[in-house]
Design a protein around this nucleic acid. Structure first.
Lengths: 239, 239
DNA sequence: CGCTATTTTGAGATGGCTCAAGCTATGTGG
DNA sequence: CCACATAGCTTGAGCCATCTCAAAATAGCG
């Protein structure tokens, strides 16, 4: 049987997903036969850091927030998963635990596979393994980039980069600028950039005075992206 | 023909390498037929950040240092590759550039494959793809861990963790402690932890006074690893 | 034995953190 | 529909970890 909620007609749509790139319809159907569909309500956790890594997920609809915390309770926001993306890839390696927590930012629909099942599928369809490889390689580059930023840049630059990244990923054009289409608190931004919500607040206030952005609770509108680029690259004319 | 420098008798040794785990001798031989052996002298760069990513490497002997730099010239030391490990995995994804530079710390021997060749091999031997997946997943976890540290810990803790990591990876027991078996300058440690060589120097001097370590130029001996753990976990009794 | 790279140390500056307090949207229950 | 509770946000003041820059000491190498 096909996974519930994935009528055959949607197969073409699924081919647009990176994980399934290069697979023919028959293979796709076989792979989907092994999938489960799971829905999560806004705010719900799909899994917690430390849980046994049972499943690999593909997000079909919604947004998922991946975070990692220290024993002392400090939290880092690693990324927002957008629809079409894979996460929880650790599951295919057997007997590991998730190194991150995953929380639904909105109501979400996911496809998921038991780790072992997916490992077998990848054995049968090398293309699938290569696709996962591809997304993992992208992740590595992205995190390395952030590590570099954390190690070499000032907080203000990191916040600017975080906003620019979100803009690229979830930006929605509205009149007067581009809206970050996510509930995004000062605390979230702090957790993305390794600082405190106080410092983020001060920075955003300053930018707002400069007319670069406009922000409310959990809502950020970028009026002048290029200004943020200037800050991120540290090309600012200090007056 | 077999790659030069890899006589058939060494095949068993190669099976111990993570990349080849789970492969039978015949497959191994096929894979090695496509490999080249390359040697690099101490200090030589295997590739530079920004070079087209042509080859995937396995380090057979020696140590390789992976670094990444910003346009402004700040440098971060991502990791030391030990023998048996894979690097340059980006190559199999086609048409990318290396996001890091790789430099031989000692004289090195590597196996390497053209990226496209390796992609084909992985298509034929899913196990190979899974092995690469495995090592990439490990890398992701490791970098995420470091990102978490960078975001939440003080410099002293990060330096302690860096040393403990090196101790685990390259530690060599000698009388009086464990020696980090690598030429490791203050600058290197600074680039691993996102700080300056000045701060590293002060920290090491303090630890030396406390009897935790003993250090000279590019040489660090850890006398009392548990002391470093205490610092890394921030359980220090401030006197 | 002198040269150069590495390391140490000092002094001063400062970015960002901490903690405390007040403010303000938002939505909820009366 | 309003007032109130609450979570999120702003702002101030003081502090301190870490950076910067300069200079001197040291170690290894040719």
């Amino acid at each position: 049987m096909l996974a519930e909620g994935v009528p055959p007609g949607d197969l073409q749509i699924l081919q647009g997903i990176r994980l399934f790139h290069g697979l023919g319809l028959p293979e796709l159907e076989e792979i989907l036969r092994e999938a489960h569909t799971r829905r999560f309500a806004k705010g719900e956790f799909l899994f917690l850091q430390g849980d046994p890594a049972g499943s690999l997920y593909v997000l079909l609809r919604g947004r998922v927030k991946l975070t990692q915390s220290t024993p002392e309770g400090h939290e880092v926001l690693l990324r927002f998963v957008r629809d079409g993306e894979v996460f929880g890839g650790i599951a295919v390696l057997g007997d590991k635990t998730y190194p991150v927590s995953a929380q639904a930012v909105n109501d979400c629909i996911t496809l998921c596979w038991d780790g072992e099942t997916m490992a077998q599928l990848m054995g049968r369809h090398p293309c699938l393994a290569l696709n996962v490889l591809h997304s993992m390689a992208e992740r590595i580059q992205e995190i390395q980039e952030r590590l570099l930023e954390m190690a070499t840049e000032r907080v203000e630059q990191r916040v600017a980069r975080a906003l620019l990244r979100l803009l690229r990923q979830t930006g929605r054009k509205v009149e007067g600028g581009v809206l970050i289409d996510l509930p995004l608190s000062r605390q979230d931004l702090a957790a993305m950039t390794g600082t405190t919500l106080y410092t983020v607040s001060r920075i955003l206030t300053r930018w707002e005075h400069q007319g670069l952005i406009q922000s409310g609770r959990g809502r950020i509108l970028i009026r002048f992206p290029h200004g943020l680029v200037t800050i991120a690259e540290d090309l600012v004319q200090k007056t």
